[in-house]
Design a protein around this nucleic acid. Structure first.
Lengths: 338, 338
DNA sequence: TTGTAAGCGTTATCAT
DNA sequence: ATGATAACGCTTACAA
């Protein structure tokens, strides 16, 4: 009988010995305190504090096949978009004793699959993803998951994983509704310079739809692909305002970075905003209210998505069945630029 | 002999059976592939793919007392400051197969202690903190940690945990150096409106030191405590510019939020920046280059701290001994406002 | 190069 | 209310 303990940290057995009870009673002390007697409870409490005991969660998880961890994959942590969702998810979970495992995919399906595969090794209580497009390997893993999978941000038609997000199409419609209500008729839409942004494409479709319903003509502009978003926004403003015919009165940008580029370009070119042209974004990034003029935009329910995901996970852990799909409303931020 | 497996996920034994070897050989296949024979390796590889096997990391961690997880506590995830450190730490670790466990403390020592205690249960390979001030409970936990603890961002004199950060005092000195080199003599410093920001206090000390060396007089201003940073910055600009004597030519703000408030206030009041007054911040937040005028500031090595922490952790995992304390340089971002 | 046995620290199951 | 025992899935120690 060879011992091979690597650390000298106290175990459940140590606490039990010190408290004069068996290990399982100490286990119950943590998991079902009501089932432990008055005196035993007091003695265990004292032993736990004396030994500064912290339960080994890996061992507990192995025994119970139920780890209090939730794994999340986001495209990036430091970007303006997902941090709020991350924050509120983490907060909602930590109050229930769950930990958050995090990885970023940088919009790469391969990186996402690697992360998901690694996460699976921890048998998390749930897996939260930030997209609905996955590699086939990821899909395979998800199918055999044995744990709830929550796709956030976008909403898709499929029914397999849980979905919590908002309607990008509605964002496009709402933007147009706001701008037409302010009297603008010739409204342009500027695409994301980064290709493959399917969500932005949906916003554009909503924009076109809403315009057509009002008998207005879409004006589309796609910036060069190689340039950054700020330059792309400036380029779009330049190109659209130099038009001789159908020069837009308002420009709806695929995101706030583009809109910001346009606001800055307008400043430097002494264009009056919204007098000469109204500018409208999407995202409500941190700088939106700090620009001059401040940027009118649509705030996605980033925080709310994280909160809702946390509630879903806790509900599932308790055996309740949350709705398969939740669509959360965006908020229109009416500021100076439009 | 009662079975109580909760999932139907394949185990090492299943793979071993399918490949016609023993479990330990499959274990070696993952951990020391070189020690497994050519044919066995091929058969195991096939079995792993056929079963879509993912190793149970909790079980592995329990057996080896060595979990490939790193835990980090940040004050907040979504703020402008720590996200980059988080991102680069996560990236540096994930390439080596480590996962990141995350919690936020909201600058609360109690919340930090709760997070650290919960993390301990996972026996992570390292614990990364974002401050050097902890509750006594946290200190107790850290002492008995049995794992490396890395304090990031600030640097302190103690030698117990590893430290990776930068000198706030030097930031204060560098700001003054830059401003005096641009010809400004009367330079004010505006404190953080949020009390208890000891790092900002250190920057202020560096500012005073550098001024004294040049025979200049410090001008200090502390905004009201209850107001937000943008309002505080505006208030400071107002108060300092309304002075009849010793009106500053330049203002050095404790952070970019304050400076941003001043930039916006200057815009609306038609004050010329830097003509009437130069404005200088700290942090290089995302909006700094998007303001009008763009904000001159000092960029802390946020990304570099995360990278360095990741390297430290990987070095320690290999038995190497990284330096106890690393001081990383900040970068002065010379823009329009000063 | 491969295998056997035991043990990691906890919880499920069954028993009292 | 409390306990004895085995099991969770893997790795270490030792052996062949």
């Amino acid at each position: 009988m060879r011992k091979r303990r690597a650390t000298d940290r106290p175990t459940l057995a140590d606490v039990a010995a010190q408290a004069g009870v068996s290990s399982i009673t100490v286990s119950r002390f943590f998991n079902e305190p009501a089932r432990v007697g008055e005196q035993a409870r007091a003695r265990i409490q004292a032993a736990v504090e004396a030994l500064n005991y912290v339960p080994n969660l890996a061992a507990g998880g192995l025994a119970s096949a139920h780890n209090k961890v939730v794994a999340m994959v986001v495209p990036n942590i430091s970007g303006p978009i997902f941090a709020h969702t991350l924050q509120s998810l983490s907060d909602g979970l930590s109050s229930a004793g769950y930990q958050l495992l995090l990885a970023s995919s940088y919009f790469s399906l391969e990186a996402e699959e690697r992360a998901v595969r690694a996460f699976f090794g921890w048998q998390p209580a749930a897996l939260v993803l930030t997209s609905r497009h996955h590699s086939t390997g990821t899909e395979r893993l998800i199918e055999a998951a044995g744990m709830p999978v929550i796709e956030t941000w976008d909403l898709a038609q499929r029914r397999q994983p849980y979905q919590i997000g908002f309607s990008h199409r509605q964002v496009g419609r709402d933007g147009v509704g706001y701008l037409t209500a302010r009297g603008y008729k010739r409204i342009a839409f500027v695409h994301n310079s980064a290709a493959g942004d399917l969500s932005a494409q949906e916003r554009c479709e909503g924009y076109i739809e809403a315009l057509k319903e009002r008998g207005l003509e879409p004006i589309l502009y796609t910036p060069a692909a190689e340039i950054g978003p700020l330059e792309a926004g400036a380029q779009a403003l330049e190109a659209l305002m130099n038009r001789s015919r159908a020069r837009p009165q308002a420009i709806f940008f695929a995101n706030d970075n583009l809109a910001c580029g346009a606001v800055l370009a307008a400043q430097r070119r002494r264009l009056t905003v919204p007098g000469d042209v109204a500018l409208f974004g999407f995202g409500d990034y941190a700088f939106a209210d700090k620009l001059l003029p401040s940027l009118s935009t649509i705030r996605p329910p980033a925080r709310e998505i994280g909160e809702c995901a946390a509630q879903h996970i806790l509900a599932l852990a308790e055996g309740r069945t949350p709705p398969r799909q939740v669509s959360l409303p965006c908020e229109l931020m009416s500021r100076e630029s439009a």
